[in-house]
Computed example of a mutant assay.
Amino acid sequence: MIEMIAALQPLVVGMVLLWSARVKLLNRHAAATVERSVLPRLLGQRRALPAYRLLGGVELTLGALLLLPPVLRLEAVAATVLAVGFLGYLGYARRAAPTSSCGCLSAQATPISGRSLIRAGVLAAAGGLGTLATGGWLAALSGRPVAGAAVLLVELSAVVALSPELDRAWLLPLRQLRVRLTHPLRGGSGVPLLASVQQLQLSEAYRRVAPLLRSDVREHWDDGGWRFVGHAARYQGRAVTAVFAVPLVEPAPESVRVAVVDDATGHTLLSLAGQPPAAGPHLTVVPA
C-alpha cells in the first residue's frame, strides 16, 4: 500500500504544479497579482513580474516531468525542494506583509493564512514520499485502480480545502446550499438576519452606498461578534460586492462598516468605517 501511495505522489504534485503554472503564465491580471504579493518588496519592483513568470515556467517544466515517464527520483527531490521553498516564502510573506496575497493557485486576492502554509507542507511531504517510489504512477493506478483513485481524490481534495484562493469555487456554493436548506432569516448566532438588515439600513454607511446596490442580501456569515452581509453592486461601471459589517451583540447602526470589493480583481475600491465599539475587531473583507 505504501509503495502504491508513494508512486502516486508525483502525479499529485505534478498536477498541482501545472495548475499553479497555468495561473502564473496565462493570468491576464498577473501584474496586479504580483502587486498584491510580497515579491516587489522581496525582489524589487522591476524584477517581481519576470520572477513570477519564471517561477511559472519552472513549475510547468517540473510538473510535466513528474507526470511523464520515465520515473526519476531526482524529479521528486526537485519537487520537494520547490515545495520547501514555497513554505519558506509564504512564512516570510506572512510575517513581512500579513495582508499580501499568495498568487499561487488563483488570481483571487486572498491573504496568506495557516491553510496556505499547511498546503505547502503537505506538498513537501508528498514530494518526499515520492522519492521512495520504485515504479510509475500509471502502473500503480493500473494495478489498484479503486484504491489509487481514492488516494488521489483524498489528496487533491485536501489541497483544494487548504487553498483559500479556491474557496469561491467550492466553499461559497456550499454556504449557499446551507442557506437554502436552513431557515433563511436566522444566522448561526441565533440573531435573525432581518434584525441585522434593519440595523444595517439605519446606518450612515448603508445610506451612502445604497445607490450602488443591485441585489438584496446575497451572502451572510458571522465572525467575531460581527455579521458580514454581502450585496451585489455596481461601482464605476464594475461588478462589485458591497460587504457590510454589522455588530451582533447589540444594535449600533453608527458602527456599521462597508467595503466595496471588485469582483474581478478582489481589490477594495471603497471603504467606509463607522464608529467602532470599544475593542471592536478590524474589518477583514472576504468577497462574497
Score class of each variant (00 low, 15 high):
120 A>K: 06
42 L>C: 06
131 T>D: 11
191 V>P: 02
141 L>F: 07
143 G>D: 15
242 A>I: 01
55 L>T: 08
40 P>K: 04
15 M>G: 14
33 T>R: 09
6 A>G: 10
234 R>S: 12
160 V>Y: 10
211 P>N: 08
233 A>G: 09
148 G>K: 06
57 G>W: 09
39 L>K: 05
278 A>D: 13
153 L>G: 11
52 Y>W: 10
47 R>T: 12
115 R>Y: 06
214 R>E: 11
25 L>S: 09
260 V>D: 02
204 E>D: 11
111 P>Y: 01
257 R>Y: 02
78 A>V: 11
203 S>N: 04
221 W>D: 01
190 G>M: 03
71 V>R: 15
41 R>N: 13
218 R>H: 13
268 T>Y: 11
51 A>C: 09
222 D>R: 00
106 S>G: 07
279 A>Q: 15
138 L>C: 13
231 H>K: 03
37 S>W: 08
259 A>V: 09
245 A>L: 00
72 L>A: 15
250 E>S: 10
217 V>K: 02
85 G>S: 06
37 S>G: 02
106 S>A: 10
63 G>S: 05
156 L>M: 12
228 F>N: 01
37 S>P: 08
266 G>D: 12
243 V>N: 06
54 L>I: 14
29 H>W: 13
124 A>N: 06
257 R>C: 11
60 L>I: 11
93 A>E: 05
196 S>W: 02
125 A>E: 03
223 D>H: 01
179 V>E: 15
229 V>P: 00
1 M>W: 15
283 L>G: 04
270 L>N: 01
22 R>Y: 15
138 L>I: 14
267 H>G: 12
80 T>F: 10
4 M>G: 14
88 G>T: 03
106 S>Y: 06
119 R>V: 03
52 Y>K: 05
47 R>K: 13
13 V>C: 10
134 T>F: 14
253 P>G: 02
158 A>L: 14
121 G>D: 07
103 G>W: 09
155 E>S: 12
266 G>W: 03
220 H>V: 03
125 A>R: 08
15 M>S: 15
128 G>K: 10
210 A>W: 07
197 V>Y: 02
273 A>M: 12
18 L>F: 07
95 R>H: 11
81 V>I: 09
271 S>L: 14
89 Y>M: 04
237 G>Q: 06
225 G>Q: 01
174 L>I: 13
274 G>V: 01
203 S>P: 05
158 A>C: 09
111 P>D: 03
277 P>D: 03
63 G>F: 06
200 L>S: 01
189 S>Y: 02
223 D>R: 04
163 S>Y: 04
12 V>Y: 09
152 L>G: 12
282 H>R: 14
265 T>R: 04
230 G>E: 08
216 D>E: 14
39 L>G: 03
158 A>N: 04
265 T>L: 05
192 P>C: 04
269 L>W: 06
228 F>C: 01
96 A>I: 10
213 L>H: 03
207 R>W: 03
20 S>L: 11
274 G>Y: 05
268 T>C: 07
119 R>A: 00
78 A>Q: 11
241 T>E: 10
65 L>W: 13
9 Q>T: 11
72 L>I: 13
162 L>M: 08
191 V>W: 00
28 R>W: 12
155 E>T: 15
163 S>K: 05
